[in-house]
């Protein structure tokens, strides 16, 4: 297997591991203390592009599903995928892919901003209907429980993802260039 492909594969694993680490970092912002999982989901799309970003998130879900403690507070297991949070977790894959599609090859903060906003909305677009189906709640209640309390935190995370992507991209590009030389 060519070294370039191995490097890409290892970078995907790295982003998966960073997402798992991010899930253990709690930040007291907004009405609900937030964990940084979403931040790394958006970063995966911004830094790795659609295919590798979605692959990193797919791998993250696989690790969690097989019971490895990669979800928030060192939790893991199928309960998180089949339970009320399953939709949000599946939304991670779609969000990373969408953010990658919208931002990759377009070095502009505006594109990145639009991408992370839409990416965050995709997580809710899958998470809230799943929560509604699993709990049997009405739409208004599902939105009140599964979306509204997290909006402030998610806005901060989306902004942070764009800022961090712009400070991390040079390091990533330098790393790729040095490795290829």
């Amino acid at each position: 297997m060519p070294l370039e492909s191995i490097r890409k594969m290892v970078l995907v694993c790295l982003m998966t591991a960073l997402t798992a680490v991010g899930a253990q970092i709690a930040v007291p912002i907004g009405p609900v203390p937030i964990v940084l999982t979403n931040l790394f989901v958006l970063l995966a799309g911004l830094l790795l592009g659609p295919t590798q970003g979605a692959a990193a998130m797919g791998l993250y879900l696989l690790l969690g599903a097989v019971g490895l403690p990669v979800f928030a507070n060192f939790k893991g297991g199928l309960a998180h995928l089949l339970g009320p949070t399953g939709g949000y977790l599946l939304g991670f894959v779609a969000a990373a892919w969408l953010v990658g599609v919208l931002s990759h090859g377009r070095p502009s903060r505006w594109f990145d901003g639009i991408a992370v906003v839409l990416g965050s909305l995709v997580i809710y677009a899958l998470g809230v209907p799943w929560l509604k189906v699993v709990t049997g709640m009405a739409w208004t209640k599902a939105l009140a429980v599964g979306m509204l309390p997290f909006l402030v935190g998610d806005a901060v995370k989306a902004a942070a993802a764009v800022m961090l992507a712009w400070s991390l991209r040079p390091a990533l590009l330098r790393h790729v260039r040095t490795a290829s030389a």
């Binding site: 594969m9 290892v10 694993c13 998966t16 591991a17 798992a20 791998l59 696989l62 097989v66 490895l68």
Partner: peptide
């Protein structure tokens, strides 16, 4: 392999 690598990185 990726599963094993990710866990080690974690």
């Amino acid at each position: 392999v990726m599963t094993a690598l990710s866990l080690r990185f974690f």
